[in-house]
Amino acid sequence: MSTTQPAVAPKAVPPPSNLQQRARTAKKKLTSPWASMIAVVIALVWTVPTFGLLITSFRPEIDIRRSGWWTVFADAFAGEGVFSFRNYEIALFDSSTSLIDFFVNSFVITLPAVFIPITVALLAAYAFAWIDFKGRDILFVAVFALQIVPIQITLIPLLRAYVGTGINGTFWPIWLSHSMFALPLAIFLLHNFMRDIPSSLVEAARVDGAGHVKIFFRVILPLLTPAIAAFAIFQFLWVWNDLLVALVMGGPQTFPLTVRIAELAGSRGGDWHVLSAGAFISIIVPLIVFLSLQRYFVRGLLAGSVKG
């Protein structure tokens, strides 16, 4: 498990002597039985549901129907518990579910829907931060304000436009929609990071005769890797986990995992052997990405919300 330490600015770290004192008071705080109990209860409520479904996904269908997942511990003790990947096999490859096809769709949707908005937003953020043009501030405020506009307000006319051009039901409207919806947050976030780059660096490059395109690629881009990673994780989680856009803009040939699993929850709500395995098939990729890049995610979270 990687770190959860939030990336706090250096000034936030208290001096050592104080650290000791804080540790002492914290210890006092934690020896209070109430505080420990609260911590344990919250930790349990936040993990047991996932854990229960995870165990269930490895149990035979008949067992899932007959008894609760917590009985496996007693069974295992008696040497009776049976675990297998059978549910995953059924969920992925059985023709009635064939989640593998939807897994492919999730992947095919996500990659361009992360790459395109980041690129567009990087260029725009550069312009807002380093090119001095008239109306810049008012434009930036407009983009910033768009961040929390509910995308519901755009869906019907957008879909109508896609139908008009004949690209509805393919991947193109999904890629386009995700790219457009992501821009306000992407521009704002990347702009925040970009403005923290010392202007002397940009000035020096300009004195050397570099144009904006050269400055962007040679000076700015290499320094922005952490910021790009931070937003890439946001956008990845958003697109991979999205239900609404994929459901409205897509068709049977483009539906991602989320759409299929929400559908299974409705039509086969009692088939927990398929649902449990299916849920984890859809969770596993974001979980891996999230755990391995958590540091960047937290940084983006702090930059995006606290500053604004």
Binding site: A279, S282, I283
Partner: peptide
Amino acid sequence: AISMVGASIIWRF
């Protein structure tokens, strides 16, 4: 990191 769909399945169970 878990989608709202995935979380809903977890809690429905």
